[in-house]
């Protein structure tokens, strides 16, 4: 029997993996993948909780909108990374530091 707890544990794991990727990876594309994992963890949570919201299915609707917005944000992010690559010839965030105090 798969209960709500199983879903929550899985989503917490996915969120942690995503956060690790964001903090540790040295490739901007991998950071975007990490962000995507974090968003998907939240979406899984929403759908799991949505089962108990019998009145208006807020969780499912929120999940749908979150998927659309995440896709839009990633599209913009990739375009900007491409632009960065044209100027710097690298997408390692550690080598991109023209702006600093």
């Amino acid at each position: 029997m798969i209960t709500l707890t199983h879903f929550l544990v899985v989503s917490a794991c996915i969120f942690s993996i995503g956060l690790y990727a964001v903090l540790a990876k040295r490739n901007t594309i991998m950071i975007l993948v990490g962000i995507e994992l974090m968003i998907n963890a939240a979406i899984l949570n929403f759908v799991a909780f949505g089962k108990y919201d019998k009145i208006n299915y807020g969780g499912q609707v929120f999940a749908l909108f979150a998927i659309v917005l995440a896709a839009a944000a990633v599209a913009v992010g990739l375009a900007i990374i491409l632009n960065v690559y044209r100027h710097f010839k690298t997408i390692n965030p550690e080598n991109i530091h023209e702006l600093k105090d």
């Binding site: 901007t28 950071i31 962000i35 913009v76 992010g77 900007i80 632009n83 710097f88 991109i96 702006l99």
Partner: peptide, 11 residues
Amino acid sequence: IQSEAAMKYVL
């Protein structure tokens, strides 16, 4: 500078 600012912002 401008493309770096955009990348930092989006991430």
